[in-house]
């Protein structure tokens, strides 16, 4: 494991922000960290990166305790915590040079990471002239500066337009293909499903589920099923009255139904018995469905 948290706990006043969190992030994975706003994602990440001290528990990076060794344990880590903030009155290049000077990184890396994040020709411009997307890319550039083995990204696509989000996604995929482990928190479930191999879900500071995405989708108690049925209105009325059906939503003329795995045949039988024509039944459980079943609708992201 490249990153582990053991019984990580942090309170702010009477509120427990993170409660006994145990995570294991395998080397080489792209690990999504999901949770609703205020669930403790950022606090956890800040404890991982020595910004916040836990009340209890420890974070280990490559076996080294962040709490015991402090910032020394972060030598193989690059991090972007929330919004990328820099000295606005200095250029992007100068900001990166300052960071390189801090930990003795070779200065040639500055141009390398600027090029890599698409800022090669804007490096000499002051940060205050950058768009939000460019600042975020500069944030990723600084995280890559010291050639990290583990990249920790907290909501890296926040404030980005769709193209900017796609650029970040592509970059994450590219970095993952080079063997860098990526721990990424996001509230965009679809985005996480697209790029992550593993995922952990937390709510109210507690771990709800964790593991490879494929396994989570497979093992989910809830099976989301797309049903092409005709006529639609009586079908909705019928299914909405069944207590074993967890969700029933209509979207563009297609029914999306949430049921337990063992109820699939009962569902089809019910529709047919009520003279409704079923033309297709397609299982389509998404990460969002898993999230909703584990964390609950009241905590929707």
């Amino acid at each position: 494991m490249i990153l582990e948290t053991k019984n990580l706990t942090k309170s702010f006043g009477l509120r427990k922000a993170v409660d006994g969190l145990n995570l294991e992030i395998p080397d080489g994975s792209v690990y999504g960290f999901l949770g609703p706003n205020g669930s403790g994602k950022s606090t956890t990440i800040r404890m991982m990166t020595a910004l916040i001290s836990p009340d209890e528990g420890e974070v280990f990076i490559q076996g080294k305790s962040v709490q015991k060794l402090g910032n020394k344990a972060l030598s193989s880590v690059g991090a972007l915590i929330e919004r990328a903030d820099f000295h606005k009155h200095l250029s992007g290049e100068t900001n990166l040079e300052m960071l390189a000077r801090m930990d003795g990184t070779d200065m040639s890396r500055v141009q390398t990471v600027l090029d890599r994040t698409g800022l090669g020709n804007r490096g000499k411009d002051k940060v205050k002239t950058y768009s939000q997307g460019m600042k975020q890319r500069l944030g990723i550039a600084q995280a890559l500066l010291s050639n990290p083995r583990l990249l920790i990204l907290d909501e890296p696509t926040n404030g980005l337009d769709p193209q900017g989000m796609k650029d970040v996604r592509d970059l994450v995929r590219e970095l993952a293909s080079e063997g860098i482990t990526i721990f990424i928190s996001s509230h965009l479930l679809d985005e996480v499903q697209k790029i992550c191999s593993h995922v952990a879900m937390i709510s109210q500071g507690k771990l709800k589920t964790a593991g490879p995405i494929e396994d989570l989708l497979k093992d989910s108690d809830l099976l989301m099923t797309e049903i092409h049925v005709n006529p639609l209105a009586p079908a909705i009325e019928l299914l909405s009255n069944q207590d074993w059906i967890h969700r029933c939503e209509e979207n563009n003329g297609i029914l999306s139904v949430g049921i337990s795995h063992d109820k699939m045949s009962d569902l089809v039988q019910l529709l047919v018995q009520n003279d409704l024509q079923v033309s297709a039944v397609i299982p389509r459980t998404s990460l969002e469905d898993v999230f909703l079943s584990k964390v609950g609708k009241e905590n929707q992201i």
Binding site: L51, V77, E82, D103
Partner: peptide, 18 residues
């Protein structure tokens, strides 16, 4: 206030030195 510590204090340099 400017959020610079989120960048500088996550590097492998001790807070004391900074």
């Amino acid at each position: 206030a400017n959020g610079i510590f989120r960048i500088t204090l996550t590097r492998s340099v001790s807070r004391f030195k900074i």
